[in-house]
C-alpha cells in the first residue's frame, strides 16, 4: 500500500507548496510513489478525514482557526513535518514590530481590524508535536525530496548542523562580513542552501533560521564593530525566526 500523504498550508506565502510543485523532474515519480489524499492547493477531490502516514505542513499559526487545523492534522497523521521557516519558527510574519499588536493591526486595517480572528504568528511546535523541521524560506528542493524519501523508509533525516558560513568557506569565497564589512548572518544561520546569497554578493539574511548552538553574541560584537546599532542587529537576526531567537542584552550593555 502506498503511503498516504497530506499537504497543508497555514499562514504564509505558499512557498513550500510551490517548491514541491517546482520539483518538476521528480513530481510524476513522487505522485506515483505516494498517495496524495489531501492537497487543497492541488486538487478539488480531497479526503479530509482519513488517517495519514505523513503530513507536510507549511505556514505559521496566526489564528484560532489555524490552531484547530494543526491539532486536527496532528491527530490524523503518524508523522508531521513542519515545512519552511514559517512552520518551523513562526517565520517572517512573526518578526518584531515597532509598535504594539493593536497598533500594528490598526496600521493596516484601521479600527475594523480588531474583528478578525488573528493573533501573533507562532511555530507549529507551539500547538502540536513536530516530528521533523524542514527549514528554509523557502525549503530547498533537494532537501525536501531527500527528507520525504528518508521518512518513508522509516528514517528521520539529519538536520543541518553547520552554519551557512561553513558552506561559503568550503567554496573558498571572499568573506562579505570580514572583507567587505557587510552585515552577513551566515555565521549563525543553518546551512543547506549552498550559501546561495553570498554567491550573489548579497549577505545572508538568515532565512533558514538559527544553526544549533548559534553564537549570536559573538556576531553581535562583530556587527557593533561594523557600526550597526543593537536594535538594527536584533531586527536583522530575528527577521525569520523571532519566536525562537532570544535576544538578551549582555550585562553592562547600554
Amino acid at each position: 500500500m502506498k503511503p498516504r500523504v497530506g499537504i497543508f498550508g497555514l499562514s504564509g506565502c505558499w512557498g513550500e507548496q510551490i517548491v514541491i510543485l517546482n520539483c518538476e523532474d521528480q513530481l510524476l515519480q513522487m505522485v506515483g510513489a505516494l498517495e496524495i489524499v489531501d492537497f487543497l492547493a492541488g486538487s478539488s477531490a480531497n479526503d479530509e478525514e482519513s488517517p495519514l502516514d505523513l503530513a507536510l505542513v507549511e505556514g505559521s499559526v496566526g489564528s484560532e482557526r489555524e490552531e484547530k487545523a494543526v491539532k486536527r492534522i496532528r491527530e490524523r497523521s503518524t508523522l508531521l513535518v513542519a515545512c519552511g521557516s514559517c512552520a518551523c519558527f513562526g517565520g517572517i510574519a512573526g518578526m518584531d514590530a515597532r509598535m504594539s499588536r493593536k497598533a500594528l493591526v490598526e496600521s493596516v486595517y484601521g479600527g475594523e481590524g480588531s474583528a478578525f480572528d488573528a493573533h501573533p504568528h507562532r511555530p507549529l511546535s507551539d500547538y502540536a508535536k513536530v516530528d521533523y523541521a524542514l527549514v528554509g524560506c523557502p525549503i530547498e528542493k533537494d532537501e525536501f525530496v531527500q527528507a520525504v524519501s528518508s521518512l518513508l523508509v522509516g528514517d528521520i533525516p539529519l538536520p543541518p548542523t553547520t552554519p551557512v558560513c561553513h558552506e561559503c568557506k568550503m567554496l573558498e569565497r571572499d568573506c562579505l562580513l570580514i572583507s567587505k564589512g557587510l552585515p552577513c548572518a551566515g555565521p549563525v544561520s543553518a546551512a543547506g542552501c549552498g550559501a546561495r546569497c553570498p554567491g550573489f554578493n548579497v549577505p545572508c539574511i538568515g532565512c533558514r533560521g538559527p544553526v544549533v548552538e548559534a553564537n549570536l553574541e559573538s556576531l553581535r560584537e562583530v556587527l557593533i564593530e561594523k557600526g550597526l546599532s543593537d536594535e538594527a542587529i536584533r531586527d536583522k537576526l530575528r527577521t525569520f525566526a523571532a519566536p525562537v531567537i532570544e535576544w538578551h542584552r549582555p550585562e553592562g550593555a547600554a
Binding site: 496566526g62 482557526r65 489555524e66 514590530a97 493596516v108 504568528h121
Partner: peptide
C-alpha cells in the same frame, strides 16, 4: 491569516 506586512516593515 493577517500577516500585516505594511506595519512590520515600518
Amino acid at each position: 491569516g493577517l500577516r500585516l506586512f505594511e506595519g512590520l516593515v515600518v
